[in-house]
């Protein structure tokens, strides 16, 4: 198994905004006192995040699939190429694409910090921030992917990218087969959030053409 990992954390400590502190304060107290079930919170967020995810990243991936010039610009300067589509991250948010290829699968991890490129990917799933996901994604990515229902052959290498405050990654999955004549809007429907984190694959053509 080949696992590459980049981890350059140049910030000395973590950072939360005042709003993040206040929400975390209420949440932790309400959960401790049994007023709120953390699982219920997860369900509510997951219910809504499927609707509110900006889907910006899906448009980026669909364009990368169908426009070789755009893909090249993404490779040269991901942040600028994403901004071309009108999607601007927070200041200092640099993005880089990592491309899946036959025999190479990329996945992205981060921890509780604000390392998730939510302006592109929407809200992070609850499990993404969990300590077990992060540590195990690095130490045994194949097992973690298997638990997500993604079975990769032993001949497929898994590259794990550690997202930081300075560099966030966007996985460009492989374009599904039988989508040759599809336009970008239709292609974008195939791109799931998990496929852009690397814990899943895009939908297949038959899954949405029905």
């Amino acid at each position: 198994m080949s696992t590459s990992k980049s981890s350059e954390h140049s910030h000395s400590h973590s950072h939360w905004s005042d709003m993040e502190l206040r929400v975390k304060t209420l949440e932790s107290l309400l959960v401790e006192k049994g007023y709120v079930d953390p699982k219920a919170l997860d369900v509510i967020v997951e219910t809504y995040e499927t609707k509110v995810g900006p889907r910006n990243g899906a448009m980026v991936v669909a364009k990368a699939w169908s426009d070789p010039d755009y893909l090249e610009r993404l490779r040269q300067d991901t942040t600028a190429a994403i901004a071309e589509l009108g999607f601007i991250g927070r200041q200092g948010e640099h993005m880089r694409i990592v491309e899946n290829q036959p025999g190479v699968h990329n996945m992205v991890v981060c921890t509780l910090c604000s390392c998730y490129p939510w302006s592109v990917l929407g809200l992070p799933p609850v499990w993404y921030k969990s300590a077990p996901y992060r540590s195990r994604a690095v130490s045994e990515p194949r097992a973690v992917l298997s638990e997500f229902g993604l079975e990769l052959g032993e001949d497929t290498k898994i590259a794990v990218w550690d997202s930081t405050a300075e560099m966030r990654y966007l996985v460009i999955p492989q374009r599904p087969v039988d989508t040759d004549n599809w336009d970008e809007t239709r292609l974008a429907e195939l791109v799931t959030r998990d496929s852009m984190i690397g814990t899943g694959l895009p939908l297949s053509a038959s899954e949405i053409s029905a």
């Binding site: 709003m19 509110v52 998730y116």
Partner: peptide
């Protein structure tokens, strides 16, 4: 449905609905 611009907003929303 609702539109959030940052994750904490969704957390605050979810806390309210859960309560």
């Amino acid at each position: 449905g609702p539109v959030f611009s940052e994750p904490w907003e969704a957390q605050a929303f979810a806390l309210t609905v859960a309560m």
